[in-house]
Amino acid sequence: MALKPVSPTDEFVKGLWRDNPVFIQVLGMCPALAVSNTAINALAMGAATTFVLVMAGLSVSLLRKFIPKEARIVSYICIIATFVTCVDYIIMALSIELHRALGAFIALIVVNCLILGRSEAFASKNKPGRAMLDGLGMGVGFTFALLFIGIVREVLGSGTLFGVSMFPDGFQTWTIMVLPSGGFLAMAGWLLIVNWLRQKEDDAARRAAEAES
């Protein structure tokens, strides 16, 4: 599998499921747990991270011959921090309310290991187009994962979805799901399901391989 040439679509698709940053690589846990208490926060955080991933991927890939390997971490962090600062201003210009909801976690995108990880492991070794596709795939996968967690937490924790009430009056909200511990519970639940599905996938593949031989 490793030696097959990888098509550009594959660079994009791998982030969605096979190498999903949250559910498979378990990267970027801090925002995934902290900012997923409502679906809209999850979406906004995902979009901001995706933007930074794509732009950082592009810049690092363009500059990969220019950056000596001794100075690569400092260069990457500097580039990532720049785009995060830009995102911070842009979100503030779009909506103060959204900026207040995301709070300190925008600034913390800088230390999201997912972005540094992709810059180091992928963008610094590939052409700009592929690096952007990879960043986009990872970003969309990250957004999806956050959204999954956010939906569970918002529906149970506030009884709403994207701010729209889901239940008749008198629904008992599960306060724990809005608290940080709810992030861990929802995350653990999704990991359980994802691992179970993957195990079934692997079993099926193994059985198919056995049948062939």
Binding site: W174, T175, I176, L179
Partner: peptide, 10 residues
């Protein structure tokens, strides 16, 4: 403990 965190009012 779970109930205490989930349904503090009740």
């Amino acid at each position: 403990a779970f109930l205490q965190a989930a349904f503090p009012q009740a």
